[in-house]
Amino acid sequence: MFRRILAVAAAVALTYVIVPPPRGDRIIRVYGDLRTAEHVAVIVPGTDTTAATFDGGRVRPYITPGGGARAVLAEARVLEPGARLAVVAWLGYDSPATVSLETVTVESAAKGAAELRRYVTETLRGRRVSLLCHSYGSVVCAKAAPGSGVAGIAVFGSPGLDVSSAAELGGAPLWVGSGSRDWMRDVPKLRLGPLGFGPDPADPAFGARLFATGAAGHSDYLKPGGESLRNLTLIALGRAGEVSRG
């Protein structure tokens, strides 16, 4: 196992030289009426998110931050017509390339966390905020959570949170989803020096609440009609008691 990890790390380091991470794209887009919203869900995407992949796509638009935000808003209108919910698709950090050394280290996440915490505490002050965090975006959310005052955090397809337990996230309830078809389930959850993000947040010992996701793949958590989307929307609406458990 140790040799395998070293081999993967070496391959990633080599590829990092060839494929540098994207830089410079910053998009924060609101879906719904932020002025009247009581609840705000902030979607924080993972790797390979740029202006070109932020929204759109005719086949699976829900895999993009913008398409996912629209899916949550549409689901909320079904679950609670008249709900005062706004959804923010937040790309306020340098999303690393999937095949790069940055995707297995915390540097990009730590820088993004400072921006996310500022956005939540200043722009969204006075509203009930939930963070919906996909893949590497879950590391950003975990680092932003302490001191942010968010009402809840939901992570899905997470590689780890760079903490040892949910208790280290500042007191906000932590929800974790891990789809049965998500390849991230097969990625070892550990820390080797500066590489990796520690234990699996879906492990019962971590102390999180598990929500049901069905047979979701890594990019399917916000797919319309899915159990995962329904549960994430209920979390955003503050209806935790109705969330189906994983």
Rank of each mutant, 00 (worst) to 15 (best):
T49H: 11
I43Y: 02
V87Y: 02
A114P: 04
D94V: 10
R84I: 09
V30M: 04
D94G: 03
H39Y: 10
P65F: 11
V87D: 05
R70A: 04
V72H: 07
T49L: 08
A114V: 01
T53I: 00
A71Q: 10
V44N: 07
D33L: 14
I43L: 10
T47Q: 14
G82R: 00
V78D: 14
K111D: 13
A97Y: 02
H39C: 06
E102S: 11
G57I: 14
A89M: 04
G68H: 03
V59K: 15
V106G: 00
G46N: 00
V44M: 05
V42P: 07
R84K: 12
D33C: 15
A113K: 09
F54Y: 02
D94L: 15
L79T: 01
R58G: 11
V30G: 12
L116E: 03
V40H: 00
G68N: 00
L116Y: 03
L85E: 03
R58Y: 05
R35I: 13
P65R: 08
V78H: 15
T50N: 07
Y62V: 14
T98L: 06
A76S: 04
E38V: 14
V78A: 14
A114E: 11
G82W: 09
L116I: 04
R58W: 15
L73D: 10
G68S: 02
D48Q: 12
T49G: 02
A52I: 06
P45N: 04
R60V: 11
G112C: 03
V78Q: 05
V30A: 08
V42T: 06
G92F: 00
S100H: 05
T103P: 05
P45C: 04
D94H: 12
P65H: 13
T50V: 01
R60C: 08
Y62M: 04
A89C: 01
G56W: 11
G92N: 03
D33M: 08
I43E: 00
E80C: 12
E75H: 05
G57Y: 10
A110G: 13
L85S: 04
F54E: 06
Y31Q: 12
S95Y: 07
E38Q: 13
T36M: 13
G32P: 05
V106E: 10
A86G: 02
E80S: 14
R60I: 14
L101R: 09
A37Y: 13
R77E: 10
S95Q: 10
A74C: 02
S95M: 12
S108V: 04
V88M: 02
A89V: 00
L79C: 06
V87I: 07
A86P: 08
I43W: 05
T98D: 15
F54T: 01
V104S: 00
P61Y: 01
P96N: 06
W90V: 01
V87A: 00
L79V: 03
S100Q: 01
E80R: 15
L79P: 08
H39T: 05
G82A: 09
T47A: 15
G112D: 07
A71S: 06
A74D: 14
H39S: 15
L101M: 09
